[in-house]
Design a protein around this nucleic acid. Structure first.
Lengths: 359, 359
DNA sequence: TTTTCGAAAGAGACCGGTCTCTTATTGCAT
DNA sequence: ATGCAATAAGAGACCGGTCTCTTTCGAAAA
């Protein structure tokens, strides 16, 4: 009776070398595809490898070469379709260039982000792509950079960190979206974001450490003020971190005596919950309330009415940042690039004039 | 002038040992958290590690221990919200147990799936979770199993491969969904799936190598026949592999003289495109056509009317399979388990009686 | 025929950890 | 005072590749 291998130690170059009657070095040359070997020997080694079913140990290979072929990616929240789409862009670009992706999500918490970065560096990823959750504490990002591993930033720029960065013009696009609402006649416009701050109440831009969101709020407030709206910041809502939280926040926002006539949602997850609350309260879009959201998510085009959105080039955002990083991994040296991708607004049916209800 | 390190070789245990005036072995004991060391020495080593900013090389660690702390995951299509949610379940379970996830997608192509498996094995993942795209060719999965690495199957069972498997009762739930349509009076019900087969035309179940889909079609046809529907298989549509393809297929399906009065969509991506085509053609749901889809995607609850769905426990599916795998990774030995998670149908507003239009 | 050169193969160090085996030091019972 | 076990630290092999350096050998050049 043939009994099963007791411990299945995997086949190594030495095993193949022995079977092919060559030295370990020669077998390694054939199997690793480097150096110079005669055709006859090559055939022998290949044959031996085949019969033994040799599988290279990438770990060992990485250890000596120092390259793992892995790109580490740290994003805020994989749940968010924005990030999943961006990650797909990254994955596609990575695979096309022969790299793999190892993914971690920070849940937008800086300590988790730091731990993730530490872990990925430990795994000796070749480079990192990070969506920094805070612009305050970037020591861990400096460390990456300093350790010689390329770093690229996705969706959020850091003025103090001069590395490859791909973003959109958040301030400009927020201005355009806000202007659409202001031009429609709205004077009570709310901005709802997932980002939270001390006290959960918005006071000023200095509280907001997520660059993209700060830019957007800045753009939003600028246009509001230009339009002569008084104290627009009283309609900025922070901390829509989960569907439940968003719903609570939306209910409070829509039930107050001075409920806004238009809402600008910072991402599609938030917009979805707001949409549900609006429906639930029997309000009509856009007759009672107008809605614009960032990110052209699936659902925004099939609702009645369909939702007007800021259509960020999310997939390209991921793809571009990965390509930038990969070019650097392949040895390209050039000053860090800051790419700002063009962004459009898709006007659908969720914006109308404000309802002229008495306050 | 302090010049920057010319080549930033990273700090190793030996460096720390030297700085702390102890042997490499002792430093390794402290830094690796194993063996027994006196408190004073431990403090010295820790201090040295801190000042040198020591970061363990997980690669080297993995090589000697044979464990990488990584779970390899191969899914059909990350684009599909079904899979992204399942992957989130896997990730959450993995992180909770101290594992990381490395992700690959096969695009439902068997050669890509094989390559991905080979790659992940090369990276010495501790275990694999696979959504097998075909039940015909499973030699690569046998290999994993034989190499001693645990394997677990997600969403699709393989009768010939006795490993931990987590699925739903696809046949049963397809029957229930079909019965809802049949009970509403429908006699012309279409089933649309992404899975393709030779010739792109459905002939019999033997063509379908994706187990979950085969089961569903089987359940669908069984109920149709029970309801006395003649040749229900003429309404089975294969190959809705991309949005464009789905749209073409849906347009053809809805424009023919014997257009179905109800459609069962095999996933939410397909249903979304079908929904769009239905709208575009000016048809009303459910007056002109009824629609049920697998997977309770975001958008299905915010359309007008909202869509009746098969609510698979997708997140749990991922979480459970990961937990099963992790328990095995932690040394648990037990016969392979085949978990079938309960599945519900959420009835919303997309099912009504068939329109009694003349053929 | 002898020298020279280059291609092909071999020997062995190395990467950065883990881990086994050995050695030195200590406390405690005899 | 002596023996003994227990504890703490050191020495060095090992994992599975890569890579540098050395050796071998045959053909072309002198």
């Amino acid at each position: 009776m043939k009994r099963t291998a007791p411990k299945t130690r995997s086949i190594t170059v030495s095993d193949v070398a022995r079977a092919a009657n060559v030295s370990k070095a020669t077998a390694a040359r054939v199997l690793g595809g480097y150096g110079v070997v005669s055709d006859t020997i090559r055939a022998d080694v290949m044959a031996a490898a085949k019969t033994l079913d040799y599988r290279p140990n990438e770990l060992a290979r990485s250890m000596t070469t120092g390259r793992s072929g892995i790109i580490g990616v740290v994003v805020g929240d994989i749940e968010n379709p924005f990030f999943s789409l961006a990650v797909r862009g990254i994955s596609d670009a990575a695979r096309a260039a022969g790299f793999n992706v190892i993914l971690a999500n920070s849940g937008e918490r800086i300590e988790v982000e730091k731990a993730a970065v530490r872990l990925l560096i430990g795994k000796r990823v070749d480079g990192l792509i990070v969506t920094p959750s805070e612009s305050r504490d970037i020591s861990h990002l400096r460390d990456i950079h300093r350790s010689g591993r390329p770093l690229a930033l996705l969706d959020r720029a850091l003025p103090d960190l001069d590395v490859d960065t791909v973003t959109v013009d958040d301030r400009g696009i927020a201005m355009r979206a806000t202007r659409i609402l202001a031009d429609a006649g709205h004077r009570n416009i709310a901005y709802v974001t997932a980002v939270d701050a001390e006290g959960h109440e918005y006071r000023d831009l200095g509280q907001i450490y997520t660059s993209s969101v700060r830019e957007r709020i800045d753009g939003f407030l600028t246009v509001c003020r230009d339009a002569g709206i008084d104290r627009p910041e009283r309609y900025v809502r922070l901390g829509a971190t989960s569907p439940d939280e968003t719903r609570r926040l939306a209910e409070k926002l829509l039930s107050g005596p001075d409920r806004p006539t238009a809402i600008l949602a910072s991402d599609s997850l938030i917009a979805l919950e707001i949409f549900r609350v609006i429906r639930q309260r029997g309000l009509r879009i856009p007759q009672d309330i107008s809605l614009i959201t960032f990110h052209d998510a699936d659902w925004t085009s099939v609702t009645t009415p369909p939702i007007t959105v800021v259509d960020q080039p999310v997939y390209s955002l991921g793809k571009s940042v990965a390509e930038l990083l990969i070019r650097r991994l392949k040895g390209e040296t050039r000053p860090p690039e800051r790419l700002i991708l063009p962004t459009a607004i898709i006007e659908r049916g969720s914006v109308g004039p404000p309802s002229n209800r008495k306050p």
